[in-house]
Amino acid sequence: MGINLAKYDHLVALAGNPNTGKSSIFNALTGLRQHVGNWPGKTVTRAEGGFSFGGHNYKLVDLPGTYSLLSASHDEEISRNFILFGRPDCTIVVMDATALERNLNLALQVLEITDKVVICVNLIDEARRKGLEVDARSLSRDLGVPAVATSARSREGFHDLLATVAGVIGGQISTKPLRPKVDPAVERALDELAPMIEELAPGVPNARWLAFRLLDGDHRVRQALLSGELAELVARQAAPAEAANPLIALQGAQ
């Protein structure tokens, strides 16, 4: 409504569990500059909107709320394929501050796919009411990506969130996400498979995730590998010039 979403500087994806106030964040950021439709070929609602910050126009795509990215459900398929193949410049993972443990499961999976992640610890006001104190810095230290506490209702933390997103996109904040440990047998399999994928598509940032998806039997990734789409993806992702020296460097607990 009233905005040309075709013209934007940066593409940002919004991921998160259901009922984390993700759509409140979406609405608060975009206001009426949004458009609701369907994901192509699917009957899953796709909301996208625009906002401006610091002189740049951003397009925000609200991914379906999911608990995980590993299953074969339409919602999860859409989310993981958008983060992987849609190449967002940054992915915001919205978490419910009152149920961090459950939400971290999804965040860890997103971190496997992409480095450009900002954690948004939402519903911080509700957590306070429930007597919970959430330390965003501790999260950020552990995960190796910035974490910002927000409350969609009072718009608390919004400026920080946007500044952080801009920083991650612009390269002022460098991220080095935590690579979650997996079962030793799976780890060995990934160690064998990931280098092969890297050889096939040099520079691919998430060979480990792709290897895991192949083991899991992801038809989409299989096809991307066969058709050479994966190699293309890397070429396109490498295109924007790296920003100068990062001002803030984050590194996940390895």
Partner: peptide
């Protein structure tokens, strides 16, 4: 199947 994975994904 999916039902098992969904329960695992729910924690």
């Amino acid at each position: 199947g999916f039902s098992r994975r969904r329960l695992m994904d729910l924690g």
